[in-house]
Design a protein around this nucleic acid. Structure first.
Lengths: 160, 160
DNA sequence: GGCCTACTTGCAAACGATTTGCAAATGGAC
DNA sequence: GTCCATTTGCAAATCGTTTGCAAGTAGGCC
């Protein structure tokens, strides 16, 4: 999986054995499945669907339902965030050091969602037409197009 | 349904009988169900889910599958656009006169999606961190919070 | 080290939005 | 009015996600 941004987990996870600490810090039990899931989430920079995470795990590590339950736990504990893709599928990204309102890039071709480096400019949060009566709490910005991965593939195909 | 922005359909539909013209203009057959669906989409400013449109139609007008098929047709013909809510549900909005990249407001409380007036500032389309290799085709901006409708309700409840 | 309880898990079934296959109904050009 | 492609209703399939439940296990306690 291609890395667009470098995010760091909170708390940081420099090596695998940190997973246990993280789990304990949120009052969750340390199980082999959870450690593996955290490691996988960490190693594969970017956004995961539950299915993708499940596939990336060593065979038999955890049931898909377990993956869903664990991701929901991470979200509840603010260690991860949910993003809904245009395909209606839920993507998960680990909570990271940059601004909660950082933008994403969604590839029309492969559906992958990348997380862009850098905070959202402050003025973006005050769009002029946003009505007074509406209590704005967050802004999400998603760029859409074709990612460099897919652009490369398309160019190759064009040559052949 | 509360109106946040005033949009105009393309082509404009000043009265109900325009529906037939619109259908003909895209080479689609004029059927009672389609006319009613277009009228409903027109009268209720804002974004519709397929289910909501179906419920707003007079009983027995059209099957839910028909509603889905018609909305897909409108999207294919560029008369409507799809927006995916954070709940993963598809919302439809009629194509309107303002910028294709106009922002939306999604209410955390009722899930309704409003369409905000005004174009997106040009500079928003060139977020600095958006990598060169990524061919950006569009930007979507969604503000999230509590809409004035729900804010009002919450205040009422607080008083009681 | 063994015990106990609350937390986790796998499995299968439920769920809800959306799509599909198919046969019957219908719009509209002739 | 005839005819054919388009549209429709219905029911079943699909697919991501959630849930109920019984069995398994982590980890605090003795």
């Amino acid at each position: 999986m291609q890395t667009i941004c470098k995010w760091t987990m909170i708390p940081s996870m420099e090596n695998a054995c940190q997973a246990a600490k993280i789990l304990k810090s949120i009052g969750a039990r340390v199980t082999p499945a959870r450690v593996l899931m955290l490691e996988t989430l960490h190693s594969g920079c970017g956004l995961f669907t539950a299915q993708a995470l499940h596939e990336d795990l060593p065979e038999g590590t955890a049931d898909l339902a377990t993956v869903y339950r664990f991701l929901a736990l991470l979200v509840r504990k603010n260690l991860a965030r949910e993003v809904t893709g245009t395909d209606g599928v839920l993507y998960y990204e680990m909570a990271c050091s940059h601004n909660p309102s950082h933008p994403h890039f969604e590839c029309r071709s492969c559906g992958r969602i990348y997380c862009l480096e850098g905070c959202l400019p402050e003025e973006w949060k005050h769009f002029p037409a946003c009505p007074q009566g509406h209590g704005v709490e967050s802004v999400s910005v998603v760029f859409r197009g074709t990612c460099s991965n897919c652009l490369g593939k398309l160019e190759k195909e064009a040559k052949e």
